[in-house]
């Protein structure tokens, strides 16, 4: 025998299905909305921030510039005026507010270069670093102390005192040599030819393709 209750239930099957659909669609409207987490997880970001590896000291940077490290990409976060007055050799100007312009992501989101952020001090560079790191960009560094420390240590290194250890003198010698490379003249060196501030050919920055392959069209 046919189950009468089942028959009665089944006669409403389209109504039930329609209601199910409307409830499901209504559920979408009613679901609590939240901002999607973009980029890496907060815990990961925090541990990246704490890690001291994200800093590069002025000495290391000077060394890499002098050795003409091809994988170095310097990004000056100060505004255009100050950038024109003075900047590190071969740096690219990218004011902090323009950091996420379309053409700048090609410089930032790639893994061919070590990107070094710098500004007058740490702060802007740190901000840029955190913003970019959150988006999971690779190989980002911050110049510790920024341009100010660059001046204090490389361009105008403090003369070590007599009672300082030998290392300090050695460091002073390297810094002095480095500063000469960057075009600073010292009275005791005047006779020798001051090397001109070298201008290596501008780097070609390869626009790295987006890692995600965009799906292609249908018909």
């Amino acid at each position: 025998m046919i189950n009468r209750k089942l028959v009665k239930f089944l006669s409403f099957r389209y109504v039930i299905l329609a209601l199910l659909f409307i409830i499901l669609a209504g559920g979408l409207v009613l679901l609590p909305k939240f901002e999607k987490q973009e980029g890496i997880k907060p815990e990961q970001l925090l541990s990246n921030i704490i890690s001291p590896e994200r800093y590069i000291t002025t000495d290391e940077l000077a060394d890499r510039i002098i050795n003409q490290d091809p994988s170095l990409l310097l990004i000056d976060l100060r505004d255009e005026e100050t950038f024109k007055k003075y900047s590190l050799p071969n740096a690219i100007n990218m004011p902090l507010k323009n950091l996420f312009d379309e053409d700048s992501s090609a410089f930032l989101n790639q893994d061919a270069y070590d990107v070094v952020f710098f500004s007058n001090d740490n702060f802007d560079a740190d901000q840029a670093w955190i913003l970019c790191n959150r988006l999971d960009y690779k190989n980002l560094y911050v110049l510790k102390g920024g341009i100010n420390r660059w001046f204090k240590t490389i361009i105008n290194p403090p003369h070590p005192k007599e009672n300082m250890p030998l290392e300090a003198f050695k460091l002073y010698a390297t810094r002095k040599a480095a500063s000469m490379y960057f075009g600073v003249a010292y009275p005791d060196q005047v006779k020798t030819n001051v090397p001109k501030r070298p201008r290596p050919t501008p780097k070609k920055v390869i626009t790295v393709k987006k890692k995600k392959k965009a799906p292609e069209g249908g018909c």
């Binding site: 389209y14 329609a18 659909f21 409307i22 499901l24 669609a25 979408l28 409207v29 679901l31």
Partner: peptide, 18 residues
């Protein structure tokens, strides 16, 4: 338009059409 609202209205419209 909010996509969720659109889908909700679209569903109701579709049921009526059916």
């Amino acid at each position: 338009i909010n996509p969720y609202w659109f889908v909700f209205l679209f569903t109701i419209a579709a049921v009526i059409i059916f």
